[in-house]
Amino acid sequence: MTFNRRTLLTASLVLPIASTAAAKEVWTRPAGMAPDTSAALWPEGHITPPPGLIEQVVQRSDDPNASDRMLERISRPRLDIFRPAKPNGAAVILAPGGGYRYVVVDKEGYELARWLRDRGVTVYVLFYRLPGDGWTNGADVPLADAQRAVRLVRRRAGTDGIDPARVVFGGFSAGGQVATSLLTRFDAKAYAPIDAADTLSARPDALAAIYPVVSMDPAIAHAVSREKLIGANPDAAREALYSPERNTRADQPPLWLLHAEDDSVVKVDNSVRLREATRAVGAPVEAHFFERGAHGFGLMKTAGLPVAIWPELLWNWLGSHKIV
């Protein structure tokens, strides 16, 4: 059966993925949007999904020219890989958002992946496990997947034509919480080593957080992400452990932050606090705050606004750190 973008949009909005074969149909067919390949994060049989956890794609857009999918109930964490025609050696891992309820596919994943790929970057879109889906030690599974992703990308350096010393991790919204957790806990023992990839460092060479969920302080936290990650009534120690702004360190990667002041979903205070905490420990940080943009603007919802320049600002910052 052949799928194109219109076929997917006019089909049922909920597309269950019950097997690898079914996943291939959904993930590799939309014309012009497809990754080149997909790599599992974990060896076959290493992780056991909770009973009844079956992935499904939900299409949220009725515009055939603007796909907006989300992936729920992730049971097969993986990297979807976009390879440039002429790799420049840089690698970027992207963790899209979704409030720890799902992972956005297009708006915060494939769209930026294609933009970076066209500039020579090899891009890996990370579909990480969600803490509320019943995994053992659920609060740590996003961080474990992020650590594993960085290590696996470095392990694949020869295959993918990238420099293992030029690996960037970027995250949007709740994916920004995944990213900023990795920023400060890249060497935490989130999982037991399983193969040669796990001998490699999980510290990215640079890290970008775009309108990120950061803090678990209820005064500024994104309430849904907080509850999914650490529960409704965490104690003070648990709240602190999962609040990256309270765990900054001098040896963390260079950090780039982007947020709109009028974000009513994830308060700009999340980025402000992380910037100040990063400065306090003497680690490098660059932050951009825009008057307007709201939440979840990605690449496509910035038309006519000054924030539309953000991808170029990020690109120039990556250049200043000799990534691109």
Score class of each variant (00 low, 15 high):
residue 17 I to E: 11
residue 18 A to K: 12
residue 18 A to H: 10
residue 21 A to I: 10
residue 23 A to F: 12
residue 25 E to N: 09
residue 29 R to Y: 11
residue 35 P to M: 10
residue 37 T to L: 10
residue 38 S to D: 00
residue 38 S to I: 14
residue 39 A to T: 13
residue 39 A to H: 13
residue 41 L to T: 13
residue 43 P to Q: 11
residue 46 H to W: 09
residue 47 I to Y: 12
residue 54 I to G: 08
residue 54 I to Q: 14
residue 55 E to V: 11
residue 55 E to G: 03
residue 58 V to N: 13
residue 59 Q to H: 13
residue 61 S to T: 10
residue 65 N to C: 10
residue 71 L to S: 00
residue 71 L to I: 05
residue 74 I to F: 04
residue 74 I to Q: 00
residue 75 S to I: 08
residue 75 S to F: 08
residue 76 R to F: 05
residue 77 P to S: 10
residue 79 L to N: 09
residue 90 A to Q: 14
residue 93 I to Q: 00
residue 94 L to Y: 13
residue 95 A to S: 15
residue 97 G to F: 02
residue 100 Y to A: 03
residue 105 V to C: 14
residue 106 D to W: 03
residue 110 Y to K: 09
residue 111 E to A: 13
residue 117 R to H: 05
residue 121 V to R: 06
residue 122 T to F: 00
residue 125 V to I: 07
residue 132 G to Y: 06
residue 134 G to D: 06
residue 138 G to R: 06
residue 138 G to L: 04
residue 140 D to Y: 04
residue 141 V to I: 13
residue 149 A to T: 00
residue 149 A to H: 07
residue 151 R to C: 08
residue 152 L to E: 01
residue 153 V to C: 00
residue 154 R to G: 11
residue 157 A to N: 04
residue 164 P to I: 05
residue 172 F to S: 01
residue 174 A to S: 15
residue 176 G to H: 07
residue 177 Q to N: 15
residue 180 T to G: 08
residue 182 L to I: 09
residue 185 R to G: 12
residue 186 F to G: 08
residue 188 A to R: 07
residue 189 K to L: 09
residue 190 A to K: 02
residue 191 Y to R: 02
residue 192 A to F: 01
residue 194 I to K: 11
residue 195 D to N: 15
residue 199 T to S: 14
residue 203 R to N: 03
residue 204 P to V: 07
residue 205 D to I: 01
residue 206 A to V: 03
residue 206 A to S: 12
residue 206 A to Y: 01
residue 208 A to C: 07
residue 214 V to Y: 11
residue 214 V to S: 08
residue 217 D to R: 10
residue 222 H to D: 08
residue 223 A to L: 10
residue 223 A to M: 06
residue 236 A to S: 14
residue 236 A to N: 08
residue 237 A to S: 10
residue 249 R to I: 01
residue 253 P to T: 07
residue 254 P to F: 07
residue 256 W to N: 06
residue 261 E to F: 08
residue 262 D to V: 11
residue 263 D to S: 09
residue 268 V to H: 12
residue 269 D to H: 13
residue 270 N to M: 09
residue 271 S to V: 01
residue 271 S to Y: 11
residue 282 G to P: 09
residue 283 A to R: 00
residue 284 P to N: 06
residue 289 F to T: 09
residue 291 E to W: 02
residue 292 R to W: 04
residue 295 H to E: 01
residue 300 M to E: 13
residue 300 M to K: 15
residue 300 M to F: 06
residue 306 P to S: 10
residue 313 L to T: 09
residue 314 L to V: 02
residue 323 I to M: 15
residue 323 I to L: 15
residue 324 V to N: 04
